[in-house]
Design a protein around this nucleic acid. Structure first.
Length: 521
RNA sequence: GGGCCGGUAGCUCAAUGGUAGAGCAGCUGACUCUUAAUCAGCGGGUUGUAGGUUCGAGUCCUACCCGGCUCACCA
């Protein structure tokens, strides 16, 4: 296989065979090093030129050549490794003719190992005076352009390896993502949770409302859904006596793609027996505050134009949020009592639509067909959601849009459910789990009857059976990890925090998918 | 899926409807403290694809492909 840019690819292959004919392997098997390039720049950062000369510190290190400045019988280069950049200086009279010949056959992108003493150049840059040099891996393709780097966003996602080599920020985002996931595990492990893995292929859809991906198992000749949520399996485990469980894994939803949606995304779900939704709000605050401190060094974090304060979470009922953010141009704001009345949300929605029609705002569709609960949820989304920049729990979700949540003892129209919003994004969703099997079956059947693309087609009878064995009072929550990583890395597109986000087409932009991939219409 | 914007050398970008260009990267040569190294020279293009208008299209029109933003669905 040959790749573009072909002239450079062929040129490098020619150099590779010259290197081989000099007796060097272009792909040796291992290399012992004393430091990574980053360790050297960090460890010797404060040494003066005189100290280095006196110390005669010898290092052995390896990295990718990311800059090359030859000067005839000498040369400077920079090696990148472990997130650091280290200058090396190579001279013909130090390394000898053989080694210098090898060096002259090296290109940007090659991975080499060097050893030598550290010194400072006359511009005071810490530098290895190379005594020995060896090729560790020949690169047949060049690095991205050095001034602009890899700017093409599509290329950055499709060839993430290049993005990671060239863009420091990409590297930082994904290392921080790893750190966040590590901290999440530590947090739950410390509190007695067991990490579990439940099926990603589900015979019955459940645990959320979303359009699924469908796949097929050949031996069983069985259609399966890629899971849209692990929820129903995790609660089965709580029935089974695993009182505290969590899972960090992918969910798949066959829906739109935009700055905060990808078809496969990572979700943390956790369940805690003998607790309710209020306990989880407290736990969530503790989790987020600790994460911000650990990962960002403080509870106040920069997110675009905003400073988000993870030290203080607001709490607002959904009805109050609608009243609070009611647009001034839409006339008198509703009050909580009006929102609570039967038919109240409908009246409010009609008022909102009257305003929406006279402005550029999007009206709420099909008001007459929706229930009060659905309209409350709609009103919240169009009126309040965008205003929730600082961390805010919205609680008291209508029962009609919360099929898995337990109702409030004093108001069955509402459930003990909350969602956490930060920077206008929904980050978490938690509730006291409905554990009455009769009520749960009734709500499932109502969903199936309602129909629609993103509604379950059948009731998960085994889940009802599990509840019939007794689910202790339990609270559960899901946290969108990708969006959490966005917040903690000041990233504004979910694709920036997913290593290989889904893009249209099979391979590179220059390799258009064949027509056969279209399939029958 | 709708709307808007974009696609020119490997990369970043130029080019009134009239001979497709620059910088970087690459190649050749010079150069033993450079760091966007420098200096001299050389090669590199089906202007996203397919049609159309025109004496003439990178430029205008149509369709399609790919991307970005945005709206809708959703977390």
């Amino acid at each position: 296989m040959e790749f573009e840019p072909l002239d450079q690819f062929l040129q490098r292959r020619k150099k590779l065979s010259e290197i081989e004919s000099l007796g060097h392997s272009p792909y040796p098997h291992r290399f012992d090093y004393t430091h990574t390039p980053r360790q050297i720049t960090e460890q010797f950062a404060s040494r003066t030129a005189e100290e280095l000369t006196a110390e005669r510190a010898t290092v052995r290190t390896a990295g990718r050549i990311v800059a090359l400045r030859p000067h005839g019988k000498a040369a400077f280069a920079h090696l990148a490794g472990d997130g650091g950049r280290l200058q090396i200086y190579i001279r013909l009279d130090v390394v000898g003719e053989q080694a210098f010949k090898l060096f002259q056959l090296l290109d940007l992108g090659d991975i080499i190992g060097v050893s030598g003493e550290l010194f400072r150049t006359k511009t005071a840059e810490l530098t290895v005076r190379v005594e020995k040099i060896g090729l560790l891996t020949k690169a047949l393709l060049p690095l991205p352009e050095k001034w602009h780097g890899l700017a093409d966003v599509e290329m950055r996602y499709r060839r993430r390896y290049l993005d990671l080599i060239v863009n420091e920020r990409a590297r930082e985002i994904f290392l921080r993502r790893a750190q966040i996931v590590r901290e999440l595990r530590r947090f739950f492990d410390e509190r007695g949770y067991a990490e579990v893995e439940t099926p990603m292929m589900h015979p019955i859809l459940g645990g959320a409302t979303a359009r699924p991906f469908v796949t097929h198992h050949n031996t069983f000749d069985m259609d399966l859904y890629l899971r849209i949520a692990p929820e129903l399996y995790l609660k089965r485990l709580v029935v089974g006596g695993l009182d505290r469980v969590y899972e960090i894994n992918r969910n798949f939803r066959n829906e739109g793609i935009d700055a905060i949606h990808q078809p496969e995304f990572t979700m943390l779900e956790f369940y805690q027996a003998y607790s309710n939704s209020l306990d989880l709000m407290d736990l969530t605050e503790e989790l987020f505050r600790g994460l911000a401190e650990k990962v960002c060094g403080g509870t106040k974090i920069k997110y675009g134009e905003n400073e988000l304060d993870f030290g203080r979470f607001e709490r607002l009922s959904m009805r109050d949020a609608i009243c609070k953010f009611w647009p001034a141009a839409a006339g008198a704001a509703p009050n909580a009592a009006e929102m609570a009345q039967s038919g109240g949300p409908r009246g409010v929605a009609e008022r909102y639509n009257a305003y929406a029609h006279s402005s550029s705002a999007e009206p709420i569709a099909a008001v007459e067909k929706r229930t009060d609960g659905e309209l409350t949820g709609e009103l919240f989304e169009v009126i309040a959601e965008g205003h929730l920049t600082q961390p805010t729990f919205i609680y008291d979700f209508p029962t009609g849009i919360s099929p898995l949540s337990k109702q409030k003892p004093d108001d069955p129209s509402l459930t003990e459910r909350f969602e956490l919003f930060i920077a206008g994004m929904e980050i978490a969703n938690g509730f006291s789990e409905l554990n009455d099997p009769v009520d749960q079956e009734r709500r499932f059947r109502a969903q199936v009857e309602k129909g629609g693309q993103d509604m379950p087609k059948e009731v998960d009878i085994d889940y009802i059976r599990a509840l019939s064995h007794g689910l202790p009072p339990t609270a559960g929550e899901g946290i969108g990890i990708d969006r959490l990583v966005m917040l903690l890395t000041d990233s504004h597109a979910i694709r920036e925090v997913i290593l290989f986000p889904l893009l249209r087409g099979a391979d590179a932009p220059d390799a258009a998918p064949p027509d056969a991939a279209e399939g029958p219409k």
